[in-house]
Design a protein around this nucleic acid. Structure first.
Length: 542
DNA sequence: GTAGGGTTAG
């Protein structure tokens, strides 16, 4: 088969000829124009040899100048420069970072056309590209196609799983890697520590700590990963030990990690002690405030707000959003509003957080009023689907049915199609206000509009029926809910409560019994990781 | 070609 008729594997265009790529090159031209302003020395080069141009590409990519990488690559391509594997790898990493484009897929097409899509390095670059595009299957497929899988390829696979929140699969890949006696690198240990943190696998993480000591390389990065791990598994003293055992190689990234960990684990004195020995930075304060919100630590949050004021960080919109949210979550809605009013460049998150703050404190009308103000004073910032969820929820919790409908209808004006969550929110709000017939109509409308009810919809309807003693519709919702989620303990509790609310005690007890028989008892999560890996048995290969 | 720090949205 001629090369230009080969299937463009990962592009999911079977049997699509590379003429399609040629037509897609129109998109490349468009993208080239977008970045045409980017300066590079292409025209000044006396010879358009691939070698120096590839070096230039690599230089741009290494220094994070992705627009320049892309612009130079496009010019090379359209000037008919010979492109080889060294031309493609830097541009693939640049493609991952160019927002709003999927130019990497076009580049992959060109790679197939040029015949340089094989080889461990290019395949690893493709793994990374597809993983960052959210295409885990394609990333895995690229890995499987690598003939000689080296440690970098394995590391890329582990990272792909982590990027998709599949920590257990990351550890499975690590175990396979060990079985196949692939030599580990510091990259491997970093990623595996992250997986351990995510699965709360303390014992395995401790073993990895041992490997870090044995490996003894890149201690700043690996120690930061260890601090993150110990903080996340709530062994903050171990994290502090790691930190204090290091002499003069601490940096701000590591300190920020430890501050976040200390506040998460309520070790405030240590957190402030570390903060006092460095110049505070926005990242440290943001993460510390996130921990305060989570723990509802208003007093500590206030102190961090003071630090932010003292160091002049309050022009940082994102930091202010977190301060606002912290006050709202701690029930201090007036303080939240003061912070909100002082944000100079309000973004959609600022508006949404404030609306949500009002909603969660029962101020439905204030939430709606703020949405109206956003339309007038938003300076081009428009509500998104989350903003509408917040305002619908606010209306629902304060039983503002008319306002809820108004907001729901307003979504169309902003080009937002109601999603399943919006319908569920509306149904929930209508149910709270005893508008059960309207809630039922909303359910039918959403089905008519092609939105499939999910467990959340049925839960909202069931709650509405509980409040309104509507047995028939409640049983209808219950039937669908159990079909979708037969093993979720919370659903059985919900059903039992529904029957209790409508006075059908026999049925209420029946669902309690069913739950017991099915062994559906709510328990804290536990990890089964680590026991069979025996990672320390093969130290020689590190 | 692969690793370390941030948050906000039901």
């Amino acid at each position: 088969m001629p090369v230009h008729y080969r299937c463009i594997g990962y592009l999911r265009c079977p049997a699509r000829s590379l003429l399609a790529i040629a037509s897609k090159e129109v998109s490349i031209i468009k993208l080239q124009k977008r970045y045409a302003h980017t300066h590079h020395s292409f025209d000044e080069l006396p010879f358009r040899d691939t070698y120096p141009l590839n070096s230039q590409l690599a230089f741009y990519a290494r220094n994070g100048n992705f627009e320049a990488t892309w612009a130079l690559f496009c010019r090379m391509h359209f000037s008919c420069c010979h492109l080889d594997a060294y031309s493609f790898t830097p541009v693939l990493s640049a493609c991952c970072a160019l927002p709003g484009t999927k130019c990497g897929k076009l580049v992959h097409g060109l790679m197939i056309k040029t015949g340089v899509d094989a080889g461990t390095v290019t395949k690893t670059a493709l793994m990374n590209l597809y993983s960052k595009y959210g295409c885990l299957d394609d990333s895995e497929r690229a890995f499987e196609e690598i003939e000689l899988k080296d440690v970098v390829a394995w590391n890329a696979l582990i990272s792909s799983f982590l990027r998709h929140d599949l920590a257990q699969r990351a550890l499975d890949a690590f175990a396979t890697m060990r079985r196949e006696q692939v030599q580990l690198s510091e990259f491997t240990l970093c990623s595996v520590l992250k997986a351990c943190a995510s699965l709360k696998a303390f014992e395995l993480g401790k073993q990895i700590h041992g490997l870090v000591v044995v490996l003894g390389r890149d201690l700043v990065i690996l120690s930061t990963a260890l601090i993150d791990f110990y903080s996340d598994v709530e062994h903050i003293n171990e994290a502090l030990n790691v930190y204090y055992s290091l002499k003069n190689i601490k940096d701000n990234v590591m300190r920020n990690s430890l501050i976040r960990g200390c506040i998460n684990n309520r070790k405030y004195e240590e957190a402030f002690s570390i903060m006092s020995k460095m110049r505070p930075n926005v990242v440290a304060l943001t993460s510390a405030l996130g921990a305060c919100s989570k723990n509802s630590d208003l007093w500590i949050g206030k102190q961090i707000h003071c630090v932010a004021l003292r160091f002049g960080f309050t022009d940082d919109t994102q930091l202010c959003n977190v301060i606002l949210d912290m006050y709202a979550k701690c029930g201090k809605i007036m303080n939240a509003r003061s912070v909100f009013d002082l944000i100079l460049e309000k973004c959609v998150v600022s508006w949404t957080s404030m609306i949500d703050g009002y909603g969660s404190q029962g101020y439905g009308l204030e939430a709606v009023e703020l949405l109206e103000r956003m339309e007038v004073e938003g300076k081009g910032v428009v509500p998104n689907s989350v903003t509408f969820l917040a305002v619908l929820s606010a209306c629902g919790h304060s039983r503002q049915v008319e306002e809820a409908w108004k907001c729901f209808m307003l979504m169309e004006k902003f080009g937002i199609d109601p999603e399943e969550e919006h319908y569920a929110c509306l149904i929930d709000g209508l149910g709270r206000a005893s508008h059960i017939d309207e809630a039922w109509c909303v359910l039918n409308d959403m089905i008519k509009n092609g939105t499939r009810p999910t467990a959340l919809t049925w839960t909202s309807l069931l709650n509405a029926c509980s409040r309104n003693q509507d047995i028939a519709r409640g049983e209808f919702a219950a039937k669908h809910l159990l079909e979708l989620e037969p093993d979720k303990p919370a659903n059985y509790v919900l059903l039992s409560n529904f029957y209790a609310a409508v006075g059908k005690w026999d049925s209420a007890n029946r669902f309690r019994d069913m739950m017991r028989k099915k062994g559906l008892i709510k328990e804290a999560g536990s990890s089964q990781v680590g026991s069979n890996l025996l990672i320390l048995t093969n130290r020689a290969s590190i």
